[in-house]
């Protein structure tokens, strides 16, 4: 009896390994489960790749623009390249940045307006960007944050924001120090309060570094401009 059970166990095990599907029809549930489990095991077993330490000498060899984005809550970071630079009916310049593994962050004059490829993405946002003049937010006004939430739906948060200039601060990014102004945008709404920080170049008006809220799931993210 035990032998028979073992034989059956072995047969079932073999059956699971054999599960597969080919062709343009939908994959059966069981096949999908087992292929995902196999993928996960392979992923766990794969050796982790170490990234070399960031030095200016290394950055100088890149020759194209890069930003570094860090999820503050868990310290996970990535380097992103611009995929699209454009203008639309809104103020400022929109830059769509993307990682190698298809996670994207979209900035309007350095202000975060969308993320994709994360969980609980920021779908869209209005900003206090102004046409002309330096990048970053300015003045006061309402901001809308449309966040992916719930049952394939979104939740829109409306917040009242004001921007304060906290004065000049030198800012170092990988061995280069920039003369910047520290702008702080404080937004309050029925659901809570968020504080976004921007370090804006005192001369060119470029946002070199920021810390911005990307929604309840992803929390605050930190962005630094590594190369131009």
């Amino acid at each position: 009896m035990i032998k028979q059970t073992r034989l059956m166990g072995a047969l079932v095990g073999l059956a699971l390994l054999a599960a597969c599907a080919k062709g343009p029809e939908r994959t059966p549930l069981e096949v999908e489960i087992f292929s995902t489990i196999r993928e996960q095991i392979a992923l766990r077993r794969a050796p982790k790749q170490e990234r070399p330490p960031l030095t200016r000498a290394l950055l100088d060899t890149l020759g194209s623009p890069y930003i570094e984005v860090t999820l503050e809550a868990n310290g996970i970071f990535a380097y992103l390249q611009p995929q699209l630079v454009r203008r639309d009916d809104g103020p400022g310049e929109v830059v769509h940045w993307v990682t190698e593994d298809q996670v994207s962050v979209t900035l309007r004059d350095g202000i975060l307006i969308a993320t994709r490829g994360l969980r609980g993405d920021l779908l869209s946002a209005s900003t206090l960007a102004q046409s002309g003049g330096p990048q970053g937010p300015e003045g006061r006004g309402a901001r809308l944050f449309d966040l992916r939430f719930g049952d394939h739906e979104s939740k829109t948060l409306e917040m009242a924001c004001t921007v304060a200039d906290l004065g000049a601060e030198p800012l170092e990014i990988v061995e280069i120090t920039y003369a910047t102004h520290h702008l702080q945008e404080t937004c309050e709404g029925a659901n809570g309060r968020i504080v976004n920080d921007f370090w804006v170049d005192s001369r060119t008006g470029r946002v070199w570094q920021s810390r911005q809220w990307a929604g309840p799931l992803n929390g605050y993210i930190r962005i630094r401009q590594l190369t131009l």
Binding site: E72, G75, F149, G189, N191, R193, I194, R211, Y220
Partner: peptide, 23 residues
């Protein structure tokens, strides 16, 4: 705790995390 262990975040920034909207 994260702030003190990693030296990343100031206390003021930890406060902003606690106050942000959550779903």
């Amino acid at each position: 705790v994260l702030a003190f262990t990693a030296g990343l975040t100031s206390i003021a920034q930890a406060q902003t995390v606690a106050e942000a909207p959550n779903f």
